[in-house]
């Protein structure tokens, strides 16, 4: 009898979740296959989206440009495609709004093992006079130049940057000795270590803490038309962040399954080396700093009031709602402190 009741309960709850999902507001969410984008898979797998009242469908994209074009063409309701790409689209007239974040940090400088000694230490001056390979306008490019400027180094004069079209080309150039070091993002430095024996000389985080990487954007008109749905979406990601903080091994398995990336690489980057933080905070100050570095580097010379495209209210209200239900939770309290510092 007891078994029958359990079975019936399971069937009913399954049916109920199916019916719930069918009636919930839908969000089509685009992402790129990057381990630090894993909060989406956690929120999906653990049922947080449904519990918060939003039916999320995930779509993987191979390039930021294609992903943002899909947001613009109304084929996606949310996109997570770096920081540079949405800034470029916004400055050229796209009506996007930053509503949250997905990744903080994550960029590294790789070199051949025999070059590590000369790049050792915590002083960016070791890179003066060096030839550095990078993917132009990648987060590593923009933030590393920002870090050099903050350290008082005139990178336009003292560092020789060689631009490549792809991160694989950067790794190849480092491996061949065509450049002294290369700026790469995850999981490429782990792959460069595994496949070519290259080494991480520095994580840019060592010089520039809490810098922005991939941000969450949506069409401004959609956010304004239905802020509650976007708030529910962010609440689910906030809960996923807590899961990611407290359940390393299950998180690694969920990421590995969803992204089809070696679990050892994900474990190493996410929990051992902690190269990035999958944090949903919008990081408004970080976005504005990033924009300033793009202009300082001379990539775009025209100014633009980017601030009006950043909405921190949705995230703060979502976080407040989650905190209200879990007032003593340490992770959520830490998120509040972090929010106040960075927005």
């Amino acid at each position: 009898m007891k078994r029958r009741i359990i079975a019936l309960t399971m069937v009913l709850s399954l049916l109920a979740s199916g019916v719930m999902a069918a009636t919930l507001p839908k969000l089509r969410v685009g992402y790129v296959p990057e381990p630090a984008h894993g909060l989406y898979f956690l929120a999906k797998e653990k049922g947080y989206f449904t519990e918060e009242g939003v039916d999320v469908e995930l779509f993987q994209f191979g390039s930021s440009a294609e992903g943002l074009a899909a947001v613009k063409a109304d084929k996606l309701d949310v996109g997570t495609f770096g920081t540079t790409a949405p800034i470029l689209f916004i400055t050229k007239g796209s009506e996007f709004t930053f509503i949250g974040g997905m990744m903080i940090g994550g960029q590294a400088i790789i070199a051949k093992p025999e070059r590590l000694a000369e790049l050792a230490g915590k002083d960016l001056k070791v890179y003066k006079g060096k030839k550095i390979g990078l993917v132009k306008l990648s987060t590593g490019d923009v933030i590393f130049k920002g870090a050099l400027k903050k350290a008082g180094i005139d990178y336009k004069k003292d560092v020789n940057f060689i631009e490549f079209g792809t991160v694989n080309a950067v790794v190849e150039a480092v491996n061949k000795g065509a450049v002294d070091a290369g700026l790469v993002y995850p999981p490429h430095f782990s792959l460069a270590e595994k496949n070519h024996g290259l080494k991480v000389a520095h994580y840019i985080e060592e010089f520039y803490p809490d810098y922005t990487c991939c941000r969450i954007i949506a069409q401004t008109a959609k956010v304004n038309a239905d802020p509650e749905t976007y708030k529910k979406f962010l609440a689910a990601l906030i809960r996923a962040y807590k899961f990611y903080k407290n359940n390393p091994e299950e998180t690694v398995q969920i990421y590995a399954k969803a992204l089809k990336i070696d679990a050892d690489i994900i474990r190493s980057e996410t929990y051992i080396k902690k190269v990035a933080d999958s944090n949903p905070d919008p990081l408004k100050k970080g976005i504005l700093d990033f924009w300033k570095h793009i202009k300082d580097a001379g990539y775009i010379t025209q100014d633009y009031p980017l601030e009006k495209h950043i909405n921190t209210t949705l995230y703060k209200e979502a976080l407040d709602a989650v905190v209200k239900k879990n007032p003593k939770d340490k992770v959520y309290q830490d998120m509040l402190v972090f929010y106040k510092k960075n927005n």
């Binding site: 790129v32 296959p33 990057e34 993987q60 191979g62 390039s63 930021s64 440009a65 943002l68 495609f81 770096g82 540079t84 790409a85 470029l88 689209f89 993917v135 132009k136 306008l137 990648s138 987060t139 490019d141 060689i162 631009e163 079209g165 792809t166 991160v167 993002y185 999981p187 490429h188 792959l191 990487c213 991939c214 992204l259 089809k260 990336i261 070696d262 690489i265 990539y299 775009i300």
Partner: peptide, 22 residues
């Protein structure tokens, strides 16, 4: 080509096109 590339403002790709190949 390098000179042209240095002047172009192209949307950077931040991730592998096909993660399954990793």
């Amino acid at each position: 080509l390098q000179h042209l590339f240095s002047k172009a403002i192209c949307t950077p790709n931040c991730c592998p096109a096909n993660a399954a190949k990793l």
